[in-house]
Design a protein around this nucleic acid. Sequence first.
DNA 1: ATGTATCTCATACTAAAGTACCAAAGTGAT
DNA 2: ATCACTTTGGTACTTTAGTATGAGATACAT
Lengths: 137, 137
Amino acid sequence: MKKTVLIFGMLAFAILALLQLSKYALISGDLTIELIISGIAIVFFVIGVAIQKRFRKQETESKEIDQKQLDTIGLSKREYEVLIEMASGYSNKEIATHLFVSESTIKTHVSNVFLKLDAKRRTQAIQKAKELQILPI
Amino acid sequence: MKKTVLIFGMLAFAILALLQLSKYALISGDLTIELIISGIAIVFFVIGVAIQKRFRKQETESKEIDQKQLDTIGLSKREYEVLIEMASGYSNKEIATHLFVSESTIKTHVSNVFLKLDAKRRTQAIQKAKELQILPI
DNA sequence: ATGTATCTCATACTAAAGTACCAAAGTGAT
DNA sequence: ATCACTTTGGTACTTTAGTATGAGATACAT
């Protein structure tokens, strides 16, 4: 947030400087009116695009992994891995193969995930995890 | 697409007109240099924001239900309902209650959904449906 | 009318998922 | 060193999920 304020402050200063500069450049006759107007137009067009892009970034960022919620839920690293595999549509046996452990281990992890997400089925766990913005995509 | 080209053409024409206008306004002395530059800056800033917004819209619009793919997959109305219930995390028994039919019926629908989505498990079916942009959310 | 597809439901079965314990070994912090 | 947590794995069991097959009822199009 402090960073944003600083950038906007510097931007405002740069804009004022640019305006003054172009004004004196015109009076002194170094540049033609067409060039100055074109320059101003390009600069502000770019600024407009950049600012809109910044807001868009903030909007879409809300659709990525919510690290804070992940912490409050308290899933362990391994449990989280299993959750992601589950959401990808794999069976316990397949997950066991992917993570090089036994199916029993996966079942234990799965049960723990259910407890922490308050779910009764894996589909429900996936749904809840999605609502909590915990899953990639 | 034709619409976009037309809009951009008109926009280009408007910009050229604006530049000429401001040039002659300055020469005739009706407006000060500050006003003209400010006006140009604002106009192009707005144009930059608008264009960026248009692209952003196209990006986010691709995240809604893809009716065409739904048709090609050929899910029946009832099968699609069952798929959505599945993705919401409900068990076969719960889905049966929601749709006022027996669990057997749900099992039949579920199996048909698996065939049409080429899935072996409900979690996989959900994942594939999501990739095909068939599910709401 | 007759065929095609959908929706419904049943039985009988296999496979997978999930629960409930228990327990050993490793990790990390105080 | 001790405690808490994680990771691993096991057995035994219950519950869902999923498959295969058959079949009646409805609706819709040719």
